[in-house]
Nucleic acid binder design. Structure first.
Length: 104
DNA sequence: AACGTGACATCTG
DNA sequence: GCAGATGCCACGT
């Protein structure tokens, strides 16, 4: 499970459902979120690489703020798209899952 | 030991 | 297509 999250390549993001599926729990996306919340190994578990199915993070529950996450992901090469009239979750910033979603 | 709740996702109406 | 309800696993009370 944590190993799966750790396995997320740099510059890509994975959805809770995706991680859950890889972890062997296709319907336990919530469990994934809880696991990340647990964050047994801070600094090792890239919570910011795990996003909603919409491509956004949990607003307010990010490690240090939505901007921080955007900065990190952007730094890793993840493509962000500004609020194209559909602001969702984190400050209306969503990751381009069509290009940056991690595929096993 | 049991009930309720929680970083989501998916099905049905 | 949108809105509401349900399921999953683990943790807290």
């Amino acid at each position: 499970m944590y190993d799966v999250v750790r396995r997320i390549p740099r510059g890509t993001v994975a959805t809770y459902g995706q991680v859950a599926a890889l972890a062997g729990a296709p319907r336990s996306a919530r469990f994934v979120g809880f696991a990340l919340h647990s964050n047994p190994e801070p600094g090792v578990i890239p919570c910011h690489r795990v996003v909603f199915r919409d491509g956004s993070l949990a607003p307010g529950f990010a490690f240090g703020g939505p901007e921080r996450q955007r900065a990190l992901l952007e730094e890793e090469g993840v493509v962000f798209r500004p609020g194209t009239g559909d602001p969702a979750g984190a400050a209306g910033w969503r990751v381009d899952l069509t290009r940056c979603q991690w595929r096993a």
